[in-house]
Amino acid sequence: MSPDALYVTVRAACFLSLFQACGTSFFLAAWGAGLPRSAGHIARLGRRAAAVGAMLVLAQQLLEAARMAGDYAGLFDGGLQWLALASSGGAAHGLQAFGLLLVMSGLPLPTPLGTALARRRCALALAGSVLAILAFTLTGHTSVAPGRPVLAPLLAVHLGIVAFWFGALAPLYLVLAHESQAAANQALRRFSAIAVFLVPVLPLAGLALAWGLVPGFAVLRQPYGELLLAKLVGFALLMVLAAFNRWRLVPALARSGHGGVALRRTLVAEIALLAMVFAVTAVLTGYYAPDH
């Protein structure tokens, strides 16, 4: 496997773990207090995701030098490692690792969750999540684009919603597995009430970013544009699943108590689809540029 291919694989895995860790922090801050049986499981998931994410961020940073050299000898080249560390990618990886360490420190939540200590821990994890997401704006296409004052906040909003959505899927699965019917229904209802407003902002922010970065429609015939279209197709499929959950499975569960297994299956399908979208994004942002 070439350093480029390994880098993109690690980057995709890093997206998964980082967004899981950040989304778990958002989920617990918003709804953790109403989940006495599953909050501990969810916090453990977030902590592990943050630990894996921090290691993958480090691996990504080390692999930058191998990519610069074009072979793995670059890993042991001090000059290239220093160059990678001093680059905008090095700053972004540093902030991401720091943010994930804060998430790891914050998520061993003490019970009961309503205490001042639990609130402080939750705030720490939340601050770490915000930093890890903002770190993406330090590097990449938006960091040097002329429209950065607009594009960087758009990217932060786009990624924040990705973290909120993707990061909530596994916690919702755990809620369905561990909580009482009433608590699970309440959590699903509260998540849906916010997601229905936030998730539509995701493609709008994404399209606005593409508008600001892509020079013209000709790019749609190039690899960057093709991958962007693949992301849109993945998102459209996710919307179908999300709509099925919101208008069929969640109301059925609330009405009759049936459909929990089907709902858990669609949550797993959503996670798998989003993982594919992350893989496409890793290739898109790791290999290609919108300007050629």
């Binding site: 905008s88 040097v144 960087a152």
Partner: peptide
Amino acid sequence: ACALTVPLAAGAH
């Protein structure tokens, strides 16, 4: 987030 909107460098890919 506002501080991060300052352009970091000139140039692109």
